[in-house]
């Protein structure tokens, strides 16, 4: 399997607080890697390092390396181009003050795409992938921020898919989405796996079990264990704390 992302001895500090304590692992191409762990374990920080949005938090320091296709992401000068290669879905929907159509067309436009027909095709495809097309196809010009919470989150997913990323980072994407829609999006993720690598941060261990090829368990900034999902969710994972977490003994 080809390595897509290689994380080596990654340490992150927010001022004096250490969020990641030197973690190392690989992410393979076209896999879904589930990342589970209780709050404050460094999951979101890890995603923000990968798409370099951690740079907006003042007073943070990053040590170690994260390589994307063998290239250190911090050596990449075109950071906007890097971020277009990585789609990001945040836990709560962030409504951009634009119409539904413009929300999805925003990233392709910033990348220079101007042809209406191409944009129309992208908007429809992404909204369908995010299981939102049927609900909004007749009101694409209305404000995205006026949609319900669950619809806005699906719009966020459509937006993340609009620039055809190589990697899709999902950070607790189902918090604001109802169970039925969650299942529909999960089905979409299974098909998207053929086109991209997916990092799925989730507090729902059963979601990781359903979707992920491999699962990583993080705790207090440490990577406790990473292995095939079947192994992690078996009765004999390598670490006792992993077993305790997935069986609900803590967290």
């Amino acid at each position: 399997m080809k390595t897509k992302i290689q994380v080596s001895d990654l340490k992150v500090h927010y001022g004096n607080i250490q969020a990641l304590n030197g973690i190392s692992f690989d992410v393979y191409e076209n896999e879904i890697l589930g990342i589970i762990g209780p709050a404050q374990s460094g999951k979101t920080t890890l995603l923000k390092v990968i798409n370099r949005t951690l740079e907006f938090a003042q007073g943070t320091t990053v040590e170690g390396s994260v390589q994307l296709d063998g290239v250190d992401i911090y050596s990449i000068r075109d950071v906007h181009g890097l971020r277009r290669r990585i789609g990001m879905v945040l836990p709560l929907p962030v409504g951009l003050p634009l119409s539904i159509y413009d929300n999805v067309a925003f990233a392709p436009r910033t990348a220079g795409m101007r042809k209406k027909a191409e944009l129309d095709e992208i908007v429809e495809r992404c909204l369908q992938q995010a299981a939102l097309w049927d609900e909004v196809k007749d009101r694409l010009d209305s404000l995205g921020t006026k949609l319900s919470g669950g619809q806005q989150q699906r719009l966020t997913i459509a937006r993340a898919l609009s620039h055809q990323p190589e990697i899709l980072c999902l950070d607790e994407f189902s918090i604001a989405v109802d169970p039925i829609t969650t299942m529909r999006i999960e089905d979409v993720l299974k098909t998207l796996k053929d086109e991209m690598t997916i990092l799925l941060v989730t507090n729902l261990v059963q979601q990781a079990k359903r979707l992920a090829n491999r699962t990583a368990f993080m705790l207090n900034g440490d990577l406790i264990e990473i292995d095939d999902t079947d192994v992690i969710f078996s009765d004999n994972p390598a670490s006792q704390s992993t077993f305790d977490y997935i069986t609900g003994n803590f967290g």
């Binding site: 907006f56 990001m88 945040l90 709560l92 951009l96 925003f106 910033t110 609009s162």
Partner: peptide, 26 residues
Amino acid sequence: DISVREAAYALGAKRRHVIVHHVFPH
């Protein structure tokens, strides 16, 4: 909110896009 900026930057937007299309309208 910082999340508005992060969401826009995560889409590959440049600073001027973020200011004109997101921060200013908000």
